[in-house]
């Protein structure tokens, strides 16, 4: 018997408010994969793990617990579509589960605004969901446009897999989940030295760090023997970081850096037969022109 999957969808801020085309791609994939999504009314920013955690861990945990409490009231597990949201919500859940004092402190504040955090909803990132064995075979069955000719570089980013002691998600030094999804869609995934490097988006005080990290990865990929058709990420921060900085670096270095960066659900949607009109693939600085031509879509 097939159990229907239903989740409380945690959208976060960046994707729904700045890059809704990424949300569309994800929703199309979920519809085809028969995953039911319920909107989380009243949810706020996760809150994002850079500034709020840095300034006040209690505020970060309490706002996170408020979001989790909304899902608990809906009686559902939470599905995130951004690695930052995933990290915050999962870390808050794990840490509050380990510390009764902090748990009580958070609840003493939430109580006054009508919430209670219990710790009953689990937190998932869609990569975790789609890379499950049974989901991979379902995905494989539903592929109508195999990505057979594509060479893809998977960028895992940091917050999806580290720290593994909390995320408990994939092998932190040799992750395979994204590759396994891309492989069932028919794409080849390449091995490259800087695969596990950070995109630098969260290093907010010094933009050189971001430029250096983006340069390291993109230049390596451009110079590979078998060229990649795209880099794929699962977090809007990584997507926007590479897309924006690659274009600028291309001019600065006077080198043709033309690897488009896609959000994994966009490639999944293509393979599952979603029309390109619904996907807005050209909504980025580095256009996936060659990839579109290669796939004849």
């Amino acid at each position: 018997m097939k159990i229907k999957m239903k989740f409380a969808l945690f959208l976060g801020c960046t994707i729904p408010l700045k890059y809704p085309h990424l949300e569309s791609a994800f929703r199309e994939v979920s519809r085809i994969m028969d995953i039911e999504l319920e909107e989380m009314k009243g949810a706020s920013c996760c809150p994002e793990p850079v500034s709020l955690q840095s300034i006040n861990v209690d505020a970060w945990m309490t706002l996170g617990a408020r979001n989790l409490a909304i899902a608990e009231k809906m009686g559902m597990d939470v599905l995130t579509i951004c690695s930052g949201c995933y990290e915050t919500l999962k870390t808050v859940k794990v840490l509050l589960g380990r510390d009764k004092k902090q748990f009580n402190k958070v609840n003493s504040i939430l109580k006054n605004i009508g919430y209670e955090y219990k710790g009953t909803s689990n937190v998932f990132h869609f990569v975790e969901l789609f890379s499950r064995k049974e989901m991979l075979s379902q995905l494989e069955e539903k592929v109508v446009k195999p990505l057979d000719d594509l060479n893809i570089a998977a960028h895992y980013g940091c917050h999806l897999i580290r720290p593994s002691e909390i995320m408990e998600f994939d092998d932190p030094e040799r992750p395979e989940t994204m590759d396994s999804i891309l492989n069932v869609l028919g794409a080849r995934t390449v091995a490259f030295a800087s695969k596990l490097e950070c995109c630098g988006y969260c290093a907010r005080l010094n933009e050189d760090i971001g430029y250096d990290l983006v340069k390291q990865k993109v230049v390596e990929l451009v110079d590979l023997q078998s060229p990649v058709d795209a880099m794929v990420a699962v977090c809007p921060a990584c997507v926007s970081q590479y897309d924006r900085k690659e274009r600028i670096l291309s001019r600065k270095l006077d080198k043709n850096l033309d690897i488009p960066i896609l959000y994994l659900p966009e490639l999944m949607a293509i393979a599952l037969g979603v029309s390109t009109e619904k996907l807005d693939l050209n909504k980025r600085s580095v256009k996936p022109t060659k990839l579109i031509a290669k796939l004849k879509i």
């Binding site: 840095s54 940091c158 580290r162 720290p163 988006y201 290093a203 005080l205």
Partner: peptide, 12 residues
């Protein structure tokens, strides 16, 4: 303290 990129490799 403020330059960290939050990659969590140290912790890992």
């Amino acid at each position: 303290i403020w330059t960290c990129s939050l990659c969590h490799r140290c912790t890992e």
